[in-house]
Amino acid sequence: MDIMEPPGRMAADTELTNALERINRTELALERTEQMLAENIALRKRMRSLVEAARLVKIEQHQ
């Protein structure tokens, strides 16, 4: 620490560094969440299509 540095400066720098790290981790978590949501939506659409196809096959078999 520089002798001319105001008191509390190191603590403020540490707090800022910690806050920036938390922001970065939060942004990464948000990106992962968005990716998982997109994957889940795509999977749901595929499953819905399969259910509809199975329903149509069942109807065809009963006719």
Rank of each mutant, 00 (worst) to 15 (best):
N24L: 04
L56E: 15
E39C: 04
N24F: 06
E39M: 11
T26A: 14
P7S: 02
D13F: 10
S49F: 02
E5Y: 03
N18R: 10
A38N: 04
I23F: 05
G8V: 00
M10Y: 11
A54F: 04
M36A: 15
Q63N: 13
M4Y: 10
I59R: 07
A53N: 09
I59L: 06
L20H: 05
R46S: 14
G8P: 00
E5H: 03
Q63M: 11
Q63G: 12
R55E: 12
I3L: 05
M47R: 10
Q63Y: 07
N18E: 15
I59H: 04
L50K: 13
A11T: 10
M36L: 14
R25H: 02
A12D: 01
T17C: 04
V57T: 09
T26H: 13
E52V: 09
H62S: 14
R22D: 00
R46P: 00
R9I: 01
A53R: 08
E27R: 00
L30D: 12
M47Y: 06
R46K: 13
A11F: 06
I3M: 04
L16I: 04
V51R: 15
E15C: 00
E52H: 13
T33L: 11
L28H: 06
E60Y: 08
R22T: 01
E39T: 02
R46N: 10
Q61I: 07
E15L: 06
I3H: 02
Q63H: 05
H62G: 05
L16H: 09
I3Y: 06
M47L: 15
E21T: 02
R9L: 05
A11N: 07
S49A: 13
T26W: 11
Q61V: 11
R48L: 10
A19V: 00
K45V: 09
L50R: 07
R48I: 07
M1D: 13
Q61T: 12
R25S: 04
S49K: 09
T26D: 14
T33G: 11
E21P: 01
P7D: 05
I23T: 04
D2K: 02
R44C: 08
P6F: 10
Q63V: 11
A54N: 12
R48G: 03
